[in-house]
Design a protein around this nucleic acid. Structure first.
Lengths: 164, 164
DNA sequence: AACTAATACATGTATATACACGTATTGTAA
DNA sequence: TTACAATACGTGTATATACATGTATTAGTT
């Protein structure tokens, strides 16, 4: 795949080629870099697809979370704790989605501190179309078996074991 | 580990807890989310350490790349192609490093379009101290064997196989 | 009931990301 | 040799990230 960046065109597979480095302190350190690089690569591929729908990666993530509870309303903190990147500024992401009329904001009756968010019909439509596209791409770009995927899941959870 | 975020405190290990979701379309999709989440987690842990040295993750990355060729000078594009996140805006990262006197800019004699960058003594000192700290943390937070790390490396490279 | 702490979220700032574009310099071709 | 394309990198814009702070509301304490 050719990814256009500001300064370079890349077409790479191995980490050594990707970051032009051959000496790693250990396999563990290399794994750390590999995780960071693979995440960047995944985000780049997905963002490219989402762009067609006028969505960023994080905007899509918020829509997907809302869909998970739809037609229930969700408050900002419940969305935030489901985000992949926990430090995302959810109110601001909702700002952009609201401008595009993909979600609606309202003040909660039960607790007036809370802002409750709901998907609009337009939001549902955009989410469904983009999800369909994204799933197709996902299947295509991740040529691994369910068993291999399971191994990755187990190993990554072991990596994070000491979340202390 | 307790990570302070704008809205929440988290103390989690399993992806299901991390993003409050139990239904994944497949192990492959879960692996995608796991990679994204683990990368965010790693960056957060490393950034916390780097903060003591007044460095961001990407600023550290640029210093590390410069060190790899030191005392050779490097131009901006050679730094860019070694970055983990390829879309980083390297000139701007160098701006911040220059303000902190950790690197020096000069125009290349051979090609006047190029800006060549070099580490200052202060830059070397800060890099060495932060690397020492970071390596200790790395060893501590990634409790996996070299063999397990190798598996991760092989699997992630398989994930990116279709970089087409 | 009044006071204080905690919670929810909006907003502000510095930096980074993603991408477009402008300017200077170099390479290439008519 | 003059034009034109390519390259290098700085700069501008919108959004996101990371974090601090302000305001309104609720919960808890005396």
């Amino acid at each position: 795949m050719e990814i256009k960046c500001t300064y370079i065109y890349i077409c790479i597979v191995k980490l050594e080629q990707a970051i032009q480095s051959t000496k790693f302190k250990s396999e563990v350190q290399k794994a750390g870099l590999n995780i960071l690089y693979t995440a960047w690569w995944l985000k780049t591929v997905m963002s490219r697809e989402l762009k067609e729908f006028g969505l960023t990666h994080e905007q899509y993530n918020v829509l997907r979370i809302l869909k998970g509870k739809h037609p229930e309303l969700m408050c900002v903190k419940d969305i935030a704790c489901r985000m992949i990147e926990k430090s995302s500024n959810v109110p601001r992401i909702i700002d952009r989605l609201e401008i595009k009329k993909l979600v609606k904001r309202a003040t909660s009756e039960a607790d007036k501190r809370e802002t409750v968010i709901s998907l609009t019909q337009s939001g549902i439509a955009v989410l469904e179309a983009s999800t369909k596209q994204l799933n197709a791409v996902y299947d295509d770009i991740m040529p691994i078996s369910e068993e291999e995927a399971s191994s990755i899941n187990d190993l990554l959870e072991k990596v994070r074991e000491k979340e202390n």
